[in-house]
Design a protein around this nucleic acid. Structure first.
Length: 646
DNA sequence: GCCTGGTGCATACC
DNA sequence: ACTGGTATGCACCAGGC
C-alpha cells in the first residue's frame, strides 16, 4: 500500500535528495523492526509513505536518490533499516541532528554559528529534539503526539492508518523544512570548497574548524592531512589589561584593529616558515618591536598568506554589497588562527606560528596603548585587539592622527605591511563602568557602557549570563530607562531592595538559577552539576537556592521551582542575587568578603593597640614623653591588607 | 571551626 | 573529522591552623 502526496519546496537543488523518517516498534537499534517509512523526494516534490511489507519499493526509492537525509538517522533510522535488510551503500548520508551537534562527543558542530533573531541557536535550544528545533526555527510543527503502541502490530485499520500517516507526514515535513533551512543557511559556504567537498555536502555538515581547514587546503593547494589528536602545549594568547579606572564619563572611544590575527599572519608571513626560496638566516626573525620566535620568509608571501589576503579582500567586497557569503569568509578568517594551534590539522598546525600571531597582536595593542598615552589620552581598558580611551581633547581628528601614526609605525616594523590594516572605532561611549572582585580589584572582561546614542551594552557581567536569576533580569529591565535618562547605573541600596522584594513577594521562585547539565556518567567529581544530574536527570533545570530544601548542594541547597512552593522568603539564599548579579547597580557597594577582611584587620589592629597600650602602661616608660605610635591607623590597615593579599 | 588554595565545570570575551 | 587563549563564578574538597 503506497501513499503519495504532492508537496512543494522553496529551494532548488541539483542533487537528488531524499528526506526520510521511520516508525519502529522500539528504540533498540539491534532488535527493533521498522513498521512505517515516510519520505520526501526533492526530485519530484512528492511525499511517499510505505508500510514494512513494501520493502522493494522502499529500496527502489532510496536507490533513486544520491543523498539521504534524516534526523538522528546515523544512530537510529539507518542502523535499524540496515538490520531490517535495507541497503544504504554509496549514499551521501546527512544526519541533521549531527549537523548541529554530536551526541557522542557532546560537542557543538554548527548550532553555535546559526543565529535566530540575533541570538545563537545553541543558547535557544533546551534539548536537541526535532520538535524543539522546529519550534525555535518557526517551522511547521505538529501539535500532539502519537501513542507508540500503535506500532506494536503489523496491520492497521483505516482510522489508525490515517492517524499514522498524519503523524509521519508532519515528521517528514518538519525534517524537510529543517533541511531547507540549513541548506539556505549554509549555501553561502559552498563555493569555497573543493568540488569533492561540495558534492559530499561538507559545506553543510562539518565543524567550522574542519570547514576552514578544507577550504584553506583547497585554495592554497596544500594536502589535506590529519594527525592523531594529542595533548599539545599551551601558548600565550591575547593581552588583557586591568581596567585603569572604575567609572569614566565623558567622550570615550573603543578603537580596535581590523582583523588583528589575519593581519598578524599577513604582515609577519607567519605560515611561510619552511619555504625553500631562502636560507634560515635570510628569514625574518623579528626585531626590536616584534620579538617573534619563528623564522619567516621575507622574499614573498606564502601560499596560505596569498589565500588569506584574497579572502580578506573578497570579504570586504561582499560586506559592502551585503552578500551572504561575507559570513562564510568571516568564519574562515577567524577560525584559521584557531586551527593553526590544533595539531590534528596537520598542515596548517604550527605552535610557533600561532604563538607568534598572538605575540604580534599583543605587541601591536600594547604599542597602541603606549602611543595613545604619550599623546595625552587616558587609557581605560584593553582586551586583545581593542583599546578604550578617553578623548580628553574632545577632538576625534586628533585621535585619528595618532591612530594613523600607530598604523604607520607598525607597518615599518613588519616584513609585509598591509594597506588593509587599520584601527577602527568600534564604539562611541559616554559612560563606562567596571566592577570590583573580592580583593577590591577591578575585574577584566566585565563592564557596562552607555553609547553616545544611548544604548546600554553589557559585557560578561553575571546579569547577562545564562544562569542569571529572572528576578535580577527583571530588576535590570525596570532600571534601564532610568539608567539611560540619568546616564548613571548606581542606585541607593534600599531602592533596589524595594524592587527586588516587590517582585519576590509575588513569586519567590524567580530567584532560581538556570543549570544545563550532562548525563551523570560524564562527570568525574561530585560537582554541583553531577548532583543535579543525579537528582533531576540530564538537561535543563531552574533550581531555587535556599537554606532548607532539596537534595542538591551541601552548603547551599537547591530545589526545583515546584518544590520551592513551600518555601518562605526567609528560606531563600539570595547571596548570588545580591553579591554577584545586582551589586553592580548599588551605590558604594563593597564585596562582603573584602568588607569582612577589612573588619578582621581592624579588629587585629585594635587588639594590638590594646596590647601595646597595656605594655606601655606596665613599663617604666609610663612617665616618659615617648607616647604614641609611629604609623597611623589607615597606614597600618593598608599594610595588613597587603600582607594578607600576598 | 574557619579560611585558603587547588580543581572541575560552565560560560563569557576576544 | 576535533579551532585557540584569557577570565570570572560556583561549589567541592583537602589541608593548615
Amino acid at each position: 500500500m503506497k501513499y503519495k502526496k504532492k508537496g512543494v519546496s522553496n529551494i532548488s537543488i541539483g542533487d537528488s535528495v531524499l528526506i526520510f523518517d521511520i516508525e519502529t516498534d522500539g528504540l533498540n537499534t539491534e532488535t527493533s523492526l521498522m513498521k512505517w517509512f515516510g519520505a520526501f523526494s526533492f526530485k519530484d516534490n512528492n511525499y511517499y509513505f510505505y508500510t514494512h511489507d513494501e520493502k522493494d519499493q522502499i529500496q527502489t526509492l532510496i536507490d533513486a536518490h544520491k543523498v539521504v537525509v534524516g534526523y538522528n538517522s546515523r544512530d537510529f533510522d539507518i542502523p535499524i533499516m540496515e538490520n531490517n535488510g535495507y541497503n544504504f551503500e554509496y549514499k551521501i548520508r546527512i544526519d541533521l541532528m549531527r549537523v548541529l551537534f554530536d551526541p557522542l562527543t557532546r560537542r557543538s558542530v554548527r548550532e553555535n554559528i546559526i543565529k535566530v533573531n540575533g541570538k545563537v541557536l545553541k543558547d535557544l535550544l533546551p534539548n536537541h529534539k526535532l520538535k524543539t528545533l522546529g519550534e525555535v526555527l518557526s517551522l511547521s510543527v505538529q501539535k500532539g503526539d502519537i501513542d507508540y503502541k500503535i506500532f506494536y502490530k503489523d496491520e492497521w485499520d483505516e482510522k489508525e492508518t490515517s492517524e499514522i500517516l498524519k503523524y509521519l507526514y508532519y515528521d517528514v515535513r518538519l525534517t524537510k523544512e529543517l533541511f531547507e533551512y540549513f541548506y539556505k543557511e549554509f549555501l553561502p559556504m559552498k563555493e569555497f570548497m573543493s568540488q569533492s567537498d561540495q558534492r559530499k555536502y561538507n559545506w553543510f555538515r562539518t565543524s567550522t574548524g574542519s570547514y576552514t581547514y578544507k577550504v584553506i587546503c583547497h585554495k592554497a593547494g596544500i594536502e589535506e592531512e590529519y594527525a592523531e589528536k594529542s595533548k599539545y602545549k599551551k601558548y600565550e594568547g591575547g593581552f588583557v589589561s586591568k581596567p585603569e579606572i572604575e567609572v569614566c564619563k565623558g567622550k570615550i572611544y573603543c578603537l580596535d584593529f581590523s582583523s588583528a590575527y589575519p593581519h598578524s599572519f599577513l604582515m609577519g608571513n607567519l605560515y611561510a616558515h619552511s619555504c625553500k626560496c631562502c636560507k634560515d638566516d635570510e628569514k625574518w626573525h623579528g626585531n626590536d618591536m616584534f620579538k617573534v620566535n619563528g623564522k619567516y620568509c621575507k622574499k614573498k608571501p606564502g601560499k596560505i598568506e596569498e589565500v588569506i589576503k584574497k579572502l580578506y579582500l573578497l570579504r570586504s567586497e561582499y560586506k559592502k554589497n551585503k552578500d551572504p557569503r561575507e559570513y562564510a569568509l568571516k568564519v574562515i578568517l577567524n577560525t584559521l588562527y584557531g586551527i593553526s594551534g590544533a595539531n590534528i590539522f596537520k598542515n596548517v598546525y604550527s605552535l610557533t606560528t600561532a604563538a607568534d600571531c598572538t605575540l604580534i597582536a599583543r605587541t601591536m595593542i600594547k604599542f597602541a596603548r603606549k602611543k595613545f598615552e604619550q599623546a595625552g589620552y587616558q587609557l581605560i581598558y584593553t582586551d586583545t585587539d581593542s583599546v578604550f580611551l578617553k578623548d580628553v581633547y574632545d577632538d576625534k581628528g586628533r585621535i585619528m592622527k595618532v591612530r594613523d601614526e600607530i598604523i604607520k609605525e607598525i607597518g615599518l616594523s613588519v616584513p609585509f605591511p598591509q594597506e588593509t590594516f587599520s584601527m577602527g572605532i568600534d564604539a562611541e561611549i559616554k559612560a563606562i563602568w567596571f566592577f570590583r572582585d573580592y580583593n577590591d580589584e577591578l575585574k577584566k572582561k566585565n563592564y557596562l557602557y552607555i553609547t553616545s546614542d544611548d544604548k546600554v551594552k553589557i559585557k560578561g557581567l553575571p546579569i547577562i549570563k545564562s544562569d542569571c536569576s529572572k528576578v535580577s533580569r527583571k530588576v535590570m529591565n525596570q532600571l534601564s530607562n532610568e539608567i539611560i535618562r540619568r546616564s548613571d547605573i548606581k542606585f541607593p541600596e534600599n531602592y533596589i531592595k524595594d524592587i527586588v522584594y516587590n517582585i519576590l513577594k509575588d513569586d519567590i521562585t524567580l530567584v532560581a538559577n538556570f543549570y544545563k547539565v550532562k548525563d551523570l556518567s560524564q562527570y568525574k567529581s561530585n560537582c554541583i552539576q553531577a548532583q543535579i544530574s543525579k537528582e533531576y536527570g540530564a538537561g535543563e533545570h531552574w533550581l531555587v537556592p535556599n537554606k532548607i530544601k532539596g537534595n542538591v548542594g551541601k552548603s547551599k541547597k537547591y530545589c526545583t521551582v515546584i518544590e520551592a512552593a513551600e518555601l518562605d522568603l526567609e528560606d531563600l539564599d539570595l547571596k548570588k542575587v545580591w553579591d554577584t548579579e545586582l551589586c553592580i547597580f548599588i551605590d558604594d557597594w563593597k564585596h562582603p568578603l573584602f568588607t569582612r577582611r577589612m573588619e578582621r584587620a581592624e579588629e587585629k589592629y585594635q587588639k594590638k593597640r590594646e596590647q601595646e597600650l597595656q605594655k606601655f602602661f606596665d613599663s617604666d616608660l609610663f612617665d616618659s614623653e615617648s607616647v604614641g605610635f609611629d604609623i597611623s591607623n589607615e597606614e597600618y590597615l593598608k599594610n595588613e591588607i597587603e600582607l594578607e593579599m600576598e
